[in-house]
Design a protein around this nucleic acid. Structure first.
Length: 196
DNA sequence: TAGTAGAACCG
DNA sequence: CGGTTCTACTA
């Protein structure tokens, strides 16, 4: 192998799943996606709206590893009930809704998302990997009285480092115990030089 | 409150 | 990595 930049296309793991109606099987949208390492799932009943809603709810419950994405084609017809669709998909289901003007835009959008040009892949449900990062873990361990176990416990309990820094002792206590809770709190609130 | 298992820290 | 001190939990 030469020391070229790794091929983006070959590096794509099979994480993208697209669920679509049978009638799209031969469309240009699906054809252009097939070459890009995207898994296509065909469903026959996606053509009726009521069944589609059911499918959406089902997929929302079954898929835990992927974040679902709903693409709607904006036509004059669909614009009429777009508000209803938006409310159902975004508000009720908590999914991502992307309106596109047509198949070309949809294909470009999906390819861009799946191949993730430097950005995060929205198909992959974001985990709490940001806080479980070894860097952050090592940082928290710098606090006196906090080792590996308590650092992990703290990062699992608090959703951000900022929350951790500004936490009151009584919030820290159930996680790391009374002694460490006071140590941590005074560490973040101590005066650097002579106190007040 | 005493004893023990485990965590943090230091050499 | 091993030993010591300190902490958290249970009886």
């Amino acid at each position: 192998m030469e020391s070229k930049a790794p091929s983006l296309l070959n590096a794509v793991p099979p994480y993208g799943h697209v669920i679509t109606s049978e009638k799209w099987r031969n469309s240009s949208l699906i054809q252009s996606l097939k070459g890009g390492g995207v898994n296509i799932l065909f469903e026959k009943e996606l053509e009726q709206e009521a069944a589609t809603r059911g499918k959406l709810v089902r997929y929302r419950h079954t898929s835990s590893r992927f974040q679902e994405l709903v693409l709607v084609e904006k036509t004059r017809l669909s614009e009429q009930n777009f508000s209803a669709v938006q409310k159902f998909v975004v508000l009720d289901l908590g999914l991502t809704l992307l309106p596109v003007s047509g198949q070309t835009e949809a294909s470009q959008l999906i390819s861009q998302i799946v191949h993730g040009e430097g950005r995060e892949n929205p198909f992959r449900r974001r985990s709490s990997s940001r806080l479980l990062d070894p860097k952050v873990l090592a940082l928290v361990q710098r606090v006196p009285g906090v080792g590996g176990v308590k650092a992990l416990a703290l990062l699992q309990e608090f959703s951000s480092v900022h929350q951790l820094c500004s936490a009151a002792p009584h919030e820290l206590e159930p996680v790391v115990g009374q002694a460490a809770a006071q140590q941590i709190h005074s560490f973040f609130h101590k005066a650097t030089a002579a106190g007040p």
